[in-house]
Computed example of a mutant assay.
Amino acid sequence: MGTWRVYLSGEIHTDWRETIMEQSKALGLPVEFSAPVTDHPASDDCGAVILGDESNKFWYDQKGAKVNAIRTRTLIEKADIVVVRFGDKYKQWNAAFDAGYASALGKSLIVMHDPSLTHPLKEVDAAAFAVTETPGQVVDILKYVIHGQLDR
């Protein structure tokens, strides 16, 4: 197939993305990764900084969300696989939206979260092709689907 395109969505407070990318590189997997803007202040402020400030918080957030959506939607649409990580520290409504969007587009969806989030994420999990708990499991899935070989 050549190079696989994997979009890494969700929680931005841990190094899970870097772990997946480093382990995939160490295995020599032909994967190109992409992600949303993970600089939280930049993501929040991009609309108002680029398009003009807003005194009303609703419109301030709307501008940022729409500018960010240009990147997010484009990269999800181009992805072969979408990985969505849910952390337990914050409610990641945007991650749930990304998972739903990817699912609606028919993308192969892998979800990653702690077992304590199984109940609140049951609908998201039901749409996923795999539900994982660790970056290593995601890498193992990538290795398996790319090479078609299972290490026992």
Rank of each mutant, 00 (worst) to 15 (best):
T72P: 01
T3N: 05
F33E: 07
T74M: 09
T118G: 03
Y7E: 10
V37H: 09
G47W: 04
K66M: 14
S9W: 01
R152G: 11
G87N: 03
V37L: 12
V49S: 10
G28Q: 09
V138C: 03
A104R: 07
H147P: 00
V145R: 02
A102K: 00
C46F: 06
S108W: 07
T3F: 00
R152V: 10
G28C: 09
D15F: 01
I141M: 07
A65Q: 10
K143R: 15
I141A: 05
V84H: 05
F58W: 12
T74Y: 07
N68A: 15
P115A: 01
L51P: 07
A65G: 15
V139K: 05
D151Y: 04
M112Q: 07
A26V: 09
V49H: 09
D39E: 13
G10P: 06
V111T: 15
Y90N: 10
K107W: 01
D61V: 03
F97G: 04
A42C: 09
S55G: 14
K63R: 14
Y144C: 04
F33P: 08
A26S: 15
E54M: 08
S108N: 05
I141N: 02
S116D: 04
I12T: 14
S108G: 01
S9Q: 08
G148Y: 03
V84Q: 07
P36W: 08
D114I: 00
L75F: 12
T3R: 07
D45F: 11
D15A: 11
H119Q: 13
K66D: 11
T38D: 14
Y7I: 05
S9V: 04
A69P: 05
I146W: 04
A65I: 04
K91Q: 10
D45N: 14
D61K: 13
F33N: 10
D53P: 01
I70V: 15
L51G: 11
G100M: 02
L51D: 13
I141W: 09
S103I: 01
D45M: 12
R17I: 09
G52A: 09
S116L: 03
H147N: 15
M112H: 00
V145Y: 02
